[in-house]
């Protein structure tokens, strides 16, 4: 059964949301999802750009309550 893990990277300057996402995906199974929360506006652009390059799926993204969120599904 797939799971969704939340990474709260709000206020995290280093290593930052995308690096946290990459590290988290290495520990998950294909089909699992990660929801990353970030106060860095670049996250909403960088994460989908990377997932498209590498072959994972951006399930949804947007902003709510003053932060950005992106949900990624591990595809391989």
């Amino acid at each position: 059964m797939s799971e969704r893990r939340i990474i709260d990277a709000r206020g995290s300057y280093c290593p930052g949301p995308l690096m946290e996402l990459i590290a988290a995906l290495k520990l998950l199974q294909v089909g699992d999802e990660v929801e990353i929360l970030s106060t860095d506006q670049g996250t909403a652009r960088d994460v989908p750009e990377w997932t498209a390059k590498v072959g994972h799926e951006t399930v949804e993204s947007g902003d709510k309550d003053g932060h950005w969120y992106v949900v990624v599904r591990k595809m391989k």
């Binding site: 300057y13 280093c14 930052g16 995308l18 690096m19 990459i22 670049g42 960088d46 990377w50």
Partner: peptide, 10 residues
């Protein structure tokens, strides 16, 4: 480098 710039810290 893993992300889209040369270091995590912008």
């Amino acid at each position: 480098y893993p992300i889209g710039r040369l270091h995590a810290l912008e």
